[in-house]
C-alpha cells in the first residue's frame, strides 16, 4: 500500500516537473528577442538607413505566439464569466461548451437507442448478423464528416446535421460491441434461464444485459471518445455555436490565446467524459 502511494507521489512529482519544464520552454520560446544588441553596434547613419528601408532595428521582435502568462490571463478571464451572451459572435465559453455537450449528448443518446437494440438483435440472431454484416462493414469506415453534405441537404438544419454526424459516428462502436457482448454471453447462464422458463423480456434485461454490460459500456466509451473528437470538426463546418465554432472564430480573429484556451478545454472535457464512462464501466463489471 505504502509502495503504491509512494509511486503515485513520485509520478505526480515527475508530472509537475515535466509541466514546469514545458511552461519554461514555452516562456523562453515566446519571450520577445530584443534587437538592441544589434542596434548598439550600428552607426546612426546605418540605423537611419535601416529605417528608410522599412526596418526598425531598435524594435522588439515578437513571435506573435502568446506567452504562458497571456494564456493564463485569458483562462482566468473566460472562467470568471463563462455564461455571458453578447450576440452571435461573442458568447461565454460556458454557453459554447453547453451547445457542444448538448449536441454530443443528443446524438449519442440517439445512437444508444438504435445501436443497443440492433446490437441485441445481431448478437442473438446469426441470420441477422450475416445479413447486416456487409452494411456495417461498408458504413463503419466512412468518416462521419463525409456525411455532412448529405445531412445538410436532407435535414436542412445545420444544428441537426451536427447531431446527425455525432449519431452516425457513435453508432458503430456501440453496435459492434453490443453484438459481440450479446453473442458471447456464456451458454450456461442462458441454460439456467431456459431451465427456469424465464420470459424473453426478463432474460434480456436480467441475464443478457448484465452479462454483456461491460462489453457494451466499452463500446459506449469508445463512441463517446469519437463523438467528442468529431463534434469540434463538425462545429467548425456548420458554425453558429459550440466549442468547435469558437475555435474557428478565434482563429479568424487571430486570437491565439483564445484558441489555446479552447484546445485545453476540449482536452479537459474529453478527459472528464472518459472518466465518467470509466466509472460507469467499473460499476457494471462483474468478477467471475
Amino acid at each position: 500500500m505504502t509502495a503504491i502511494r509512494g509511486l503515485a507521489l513520485k509520478a505526480a512529482l515527475v508530472s509537475v516537473l515535466l509541466f514546469a519544464l514545458f511552461l519554461g520552454a514555452w516562456q523562453v520560446a515566446t519571450t520577445p528577442v530584443g534587437g538592441s544588441a544589434v542596434g548598439a553596434a550600428l552607426t546612426p547613419e546605418q540605423i537611419e538607413y535601416a529605417r528608410m528601408m522599412g526596418k526598425d532595428p531598435g524594435a522588439q521582435k515578437a513571435s506573435g505566439f502568446p506567452t504562458p502568462g497571456q494564456v493564463a490571463a485569458t483562462i482566468v478571464g473566460h472562467l470568471a464569466d463563462p455564461f455571458y451572451d453578447k450576440g452571435p459572435n461573442d458568447k461565454g465559453i460556458g454557453i459554447q461548451l453547453g451547445h457542444s455537450l448538448a449536441r454530443v449528448g443528443l446524438g449519442f443518446a440517439l445512437a444508444c437507442l438504435v445501436a443497443i437494440p440492433l446490437g441485441f438483435l445481431i448478437g442473438m440472431s446469426p441470420l441477422m448478423r450475416r445479413a447486416l454484416d456487409p452494411f456495417i462493414q461498408v458504413l463503419k469506415p466512412i468518416s462521419p464528416l463525409a456525411w455532412m453534405p448529405l445531412a445538410l441537404y436532407t435535414i436542412k438544419d445545420s444544428s441537426a446535421s451536427g447531431i446527425f454526424v455525432i449519431f452516425i459516428c457513435s453508432v458503430w462502436p456501440m453496435l459492434v460491441n453490443t453484438a459481440f457482448g450479446v453473442a458471447s454471453v456464456k451458454r450456461e447462464w442462458l441454460n439456467v434461464a431456459r431451465t427456469l422458463e424465464v420470459s424473453a423480456m426478463r432474460k434480456a434485461f436480467l441475464v443478457i444485459l448484465p452479462a454483456a454490460a461491460p462489453t457494451i459500456l466499452t463500446g459506449m466509451r469508445i463512441s463517446m471518445g469519437i463523438a467528442w473528437l468529431v463534434i469540434v470538426a463538425a462545429e467548425m463546418l456548420v458554425g453558429g455555436t459550440g466549442i468547435g465554432y469558437f475555435v474557428w472564430n478565434e482563429w479568424n480573429n487571430l486570437s491565439l490565446t483564445n484558441v489555446i484556451f479552447a484546445v485545453l478545454l476540449i482536452g479537459v472535457v474529453g478527459m472528464l467524459l472518459d472518466m465518467a464512462f470509466g466509472r460507469l464501466q467499473r460499476a457494471v463489471t462483474y468478477v467471475e
Partner: peptide
C-alpha cells in the same frame, strides 16, 4: 426439472 450445473452457473452480477 431443476438442474445443478457442473460449473455452478451462478450469475456473477
Amino acid at each position: 426439472r431443476g438442474v445443478v450445473f457442473q460449473s455452478h452457473a451462478l450469475m456473477p452480477w
